[in-house]
């Protein structure tokens, strides 16, 4: 049976997920828990507790007893499904009735979303084809998409056969040097480098960053690191220091391929209430960071 992925959403035309116009595919589930996550509903998998069903104003969510109908996938967090269900059964989502009011997401106690579709690589590719020839490529993002790497290999193999350029967006916890099969079909990885200092990184994400940096260096040396990103959050960690050290760390590899440094201004919008207290960094500060990394040979944008 073809591998299925948990797809949170597909954005047909995206201007912010890599160069040019791309179809962006967002997969559900992440192994980080970043404080400033702007899509916290993509972090965890739905456990079918059913709390959101009655919050839905349009009846887009309902109970079903047929897991086959949902084609439930075996995923690593399978055991989560046993937690706190209102009744046996599964929550079914009907996209046709959904008005995207986000009431379900807002009321989910598990940091998840019921609006997840199970799709094979071919099913996703079918949706990508609708945008051809208007797009130059696809980007798979998340969540953390490498947690569903079998699906990625399948999708990228199909997409490349049709001339599309394939990027993935990752937090860098999968050891890319050990996955040549995935890398062979990936044109580039856009990596989040949340913080250069290990302690800062742990504070932001709950995890160590040794693997992230190892990946950054490995990918940069192959010329497969088109973009790195750092979200600048005043008061959470020293953004300037982190950016300087990250750029210094990667500068020797620029000859293998250009790297764009995307400097993202933290904005509280969409962030979970308990973490939303930080201010947005001012533009002059961001411009200074931009100049700094440009002088080190990167192209840079402020987002």
């Amino acid at each position: 049976m073809a591998v299925e992925a948990l797809v949170n959403k597909i954005i047909p035309f995206s201007s912010v997920d890599g160069p040019g116009n791309r179809t962006a595919v967002f997969l559900q589930g992440c192994n980080f828990d970043c404080r400033y996550c702007h899509n916290p509903e993509t972090i965890h998998l739905c456990v079918s507790c059913g709390l959101c069903v009655e919050k839905c104003p349009t009846g887009a969510l309902s109970w079903t007893d047929e897991p086959e109908d949902l084609r439930e996938v075996r995923h690593r967090d399978g055991e989560e499904r046993e937690r706190g269900r209102l009744r046996p059964g599964y929550v079914r989502y009907d996209a046709a009735k959904c008005v995207l009011c986000d009431a379900c997401i807002g009321n989910c106690p598990h940091g998840s979303s019921p609006r997840i579709t199970h799709m094979t690589a071919e099913a996703v590719m079918k949706q990508v084809r609708r945008q051809m020839p208007y797009i130059r490529g696809i980007t798979v993002s998340g969540g953390e998409c490498t947690r569903q790497r079998d699906f990625l290999v399948g999708l990228f193999t199909l997409a490349r056969a049709e001339g599309l350029d394939c990027l993935l967006d990752s937090n860098g916890t999968l050891d890319f040097s050990k996955d040549p099969e995935l890398l062979a079909v990936t044109d580039g990885v856009m990596l989040d480098i949340k913080a250069f200092d290990a302690a800062d990184h742990r504070l932001v994400t709950g995890h160590d960053n040794a693997m992230v940096l190892q990946n950054a260096r490995y990918l940069a040396s192959l010329g497969k690191l088109p973009e790195i990103r750092t979200v600048i959050v005043p008061g959470l960690f020293d953004g300037e220091e982190s950016v300087r050290r990250t750029a210094g760390f990667l500068a020797p590899y620029l000859k293998a391929g250009a790297i764009r440094y995307k400097l993202i201004r933290y904005r509280p919008m969409g962030v979970r209430a308990q973490y939303a207290a930080h201010p947005t960094p001012d533009l002059a500060f961001m411009e200074r960071l931009k100049r700094m990394v440009c002088e080190m040979g990167f192209t840079a944008v402020i987002a």
Partner: peptide, 17 residues
Amino acid sequence: DITVHNNPEYVLDIVKG
């Protein structure tokens, strides 16, 4: 949308397509 300022290729891809 203004975010395209960082990515003019986005518009060009649409024109080409």
